[in-house]
Simulated scan of single mutants.
Amino acid sequence: MDLSTLRVDFPLIAGRPDLVYLDSAATSQKPRRVIESLKRFYETLNANVHRGAYRLSAEATEAYEEARKRLARFLNANPQEIVFVRNTTEAMNLVAYAWGLRNLKEGDEVLVTEMEHHAGLVPWHLVAGLTGARIRAIPLTEEGRLDLSALDTLLTERVKVVSVVHMSNVLGTINPVAEIARRAKEVGALVVVDGAQSAPHLPVNVKALGADFFALSGHKMLGPTGAGVL
């Protein structure tokens, strides 16, 4: 890979050979074609989506739905399963509040991990406080991996949700989500996956993972800020 050629694709760093950007796990830089696509939309397609019968609105709607189809192909999902949100945090909150408040009750358990991002912890703790559910966590080994042997005692029929980060933003650990999901389904639990870090770096197949919900942020994977997917 010719890194000097790669840098040319990114306007912010193209003219700054002294700049080494190492914060993509928080926010990635945007390649020229993404910036140009945004500019092209506002210059040629900007109109209400799904709320107009005139030609420009229809063209904007078509572009919007094509984005949905592309994300579905990217994740091996169905287009009707794609919900646009602002980011992973909003997606995780949406699941916790829209599903959790309606379905969790006292005595139920939500299983998380000790390496979750705050977005994968705080919503469940708040919803647990409102519903009487209990939060339990899969512990870590000294090597920074999940101690899957703990699942033997943690995964009971009281567990209604397993919320797990696919790739840790702190440790870089890639968790065996498919295995965890398989065991979660054996006790009837839903599986929520924080894919904010995995989607930019790994091939993601939500069906193979066994994810009931999978969340990602566009701004971590070369896309614009304020565009995410559940």
Rank of each mutant, 00 (worst) to 15 (best):
M1Q: 11
M1D: 14
L3C: 11
S4P: 00
S4M: 05
I13E: 13
A14Y: 11
A14D: 08
R16Y: 09
P17I: 14
D18N: 04
V20R: 10
L22K: 13
A25P: 01
A25M: 07
T27E: 08
S28W: 10
Q29R: 07
P31D: 15
R32T: 12
R32F: 05
R40F: 12
F41W: 06
Y42T: 09
T44V: 09
T44R: 03
N46R: 13
V49Y: 09
V49K: 03
V49Q: 08
G52W: 06
G52P: 02
R55D: 10
A58G: 13
E59Q: 07
T61H: 09
T61W: 11
E65S: 11
R68V: 15
K69E: 15
L71G: 13
L71K: 08
L71W: 12
F74K: 15
F74D: 13
N76H: 15
N78M: 11
E81G: 01
I82V: 15
F84K: 02
F84V: 11
F84N: 03
V85L: 11
N87T: 15
N87E: 14
T88Y: 06
T88L: 10
Y97N: 12
R102W: 09
R102Y: 06
N103E: 14
N103P: 00
N103F: 07
K105R: 09
E106C: 02
G107Q: 12
V110S: 02
V110M: 01
L111T: 12
T113I: 05
H117E: 13
H117Q: 09
H117L: 07
H118R: 06
G120E: 10
V122F: 14
P123A: 08
V127D: 03
V127A: 01
A128M: 07
L130H: 07
G132C: 03
R134D: 10
I138Y: 01
T141E: 09
E143I: 04
E143T: 07
L146C: 03
L148H: 12
S149Q: 10
A150H: 01
L155S: 09
T156P: 00
E157T: 12
E157W: 02
R158P: 02
R158C: 05
V159A: 06
V161L: 01
V164D: 06
T173V: 12
I174P: 01
I174L: 13
I174C: 05
N175A: 09
V177T: 12
A181E: 14
A181T: 10
R182D: 09
R182V: 06
R183Y: 14
K185E: 15
A189T: 05
A189L: 04
V193Y: 04
D194P: 00
D194M: 01
G195M: 05
A196I: 08
A196P: 00
A196T: 13
S198V: 14
A199F: 06
P200F: 09
L202Q: 10
A208P: 01
L209D: 06
F213Y: 15
A215V: 15
L216K: 05
L216T: 15
K220F: 06
G223Y: 14
A227P: 00
G228V: 09
V229Y: 07
